[in-house]
Design a protein around this nucleic acid. Structure first.
Lengths: 223, 223
DNA sequence: CGGCATCCATTTTGATACTG
DNA sequence: CAGTATCAAAATGGATGCCG
């Protein structure tokens, strides 16, 4: 079964031949915050059935964008991780995310799902390397029952699922508060003052956090 | 139509709800080099029928990414152009193109079509703003019977279909030669020396051309 | 030429049941 | 859990034909 291709000798078309199918770029988005198990992937992508998920994963493996790995003990369960080629799709996915933040993120709709990892990736998309020159810090985020860590190191950033080894600061808040902060309806400082977010560790690092990102304002496409 | 959405409150997913359908990002790629008529779009996208093309264009109009315009005299024919929101998808499309240049552009396949505009967009994708600080020049490219112009101005670049007003230099070559130069099988200087490319105008500007771009080498995804 | 409508074969997908 | 198998619904591709 030869898959459908655009038959164009063009870098954009060739890329879309590989990752342009429905769900594929979202699958890569999920893996950009670290390896995930089959079930976790499906949980993050409601509407994607097990059959199609298996087929997409097989495709990504076959094309060298992802690989099946075994999680380190004590988990020892199978999971999927990006290869170097897959990892390098990050700039493209983050560019799509930046566009969406500016032009497509109005109110949250009733039927829309949300996962904190998406907001973390949005943070990475808005990271300003210039603002982090010579700065280094590790943050741990606890959103409801999910844990992430963000590592900033001199113009580079990493945003991954899971706890940090030695975080400089830990920030805990609810999913709802995270949404309000990333939507710029409240600042992190305000959320802390209101008791909606709890911080432990280096307060100075937390205060610097806001300056590391350039959150875009929403624009209207039909103007 | 267009009922199908990912139902995710995520910038990447919202963007893909708008431009993730088959052909849509390639349509935007076509429009990134300037307004195009219905027939020209179809010519650039073989396999896309008139029905689906009309439907996709209507979708882009409805969503504020493109608009129908009337070409200036003496043409006066209808055409499609990107809106500001559509234009701002350029970083995402160019990121996909950069990835493809590195990870997906092997030999050209028999059945693959090619249009010079795609290579011009590839040039834009590889443009290095740092290398063009304080530099300003306009180039006109004539590839077989198609004409493009590239305007470089102090860290910014524009690559558009059509002739330049007052080009500093004009470069003419065949589609085949263009392919060999962009694939780095030959340099522009070599093509000129071999008589495969003809240059008129400012030779110094042409010699500087190569330094403005960082063409990536091809990598193997399965290593 | 520009653009829409219609019919139809083929693919892709979504949803669910089922197995190790 | 991690996937397969199966089937119905939707999207696509291609070939028209029509109209201004």
């Amino acid at each position: 079964m030869e898959q459908r291709t655009y038959h164009q000798y063009c870098a954009t078309a060739r890329t879309l031949d590989l990752v342009g199918d429905r769900w594929t770029l979202l699958l890569i988005r999920e893996l950009l915050t670290g390896p995930k198990r089959f079930g976790d992937l499906q949980a993050g992508l409601r509407g994607l059935g097990t059959g199609l998920l298996a087929s997409r994963l097989k495709h990504l493996e076959r094309e060298g964008l992802a690989r099946k790995v075994t999680l380190p003990p004590p988990a020892r369960t199978p999971a999927y991780a990006l290869t170097e080629a897959g990892e390098e799709l990050a700039p493209a996915v983050l560019a799509l995310a930046r566009w969406g933040m500016k032009w497509a993120m109005g109110e949250r709709q009733e039927a829309e799902t949300f996962h904190p990892g998406w907001a973390l990736l949005g943070l990475r998309a808005c990271f300003d390397p210039e603002a982090a020159v010579g700065f280094r810090a590790t943050y741990e985020f606890r959103i409801d029952d999910e844990v992430f860590h963000v590592h900033v190191d001199d113009g580079a950033i990493e945003t991954l699922h899971g706890p940090a080894q030695r975080p400089d600061a830990t920030i805990a808040m609810s999913e709802e508060t995270l949404l309000r902060v990333t939507a710029q309806e409240a600042t992190l400082a305000e959320a802390i003052a209101a008791g909606d977010a709890a911080v432990t560790g280096d307060r100075a690092a937390v205060e610097r956090l806001r300056s590391l990102f350039r959150l875009p304002r929403h624009h209207d496409r039909t103007s």
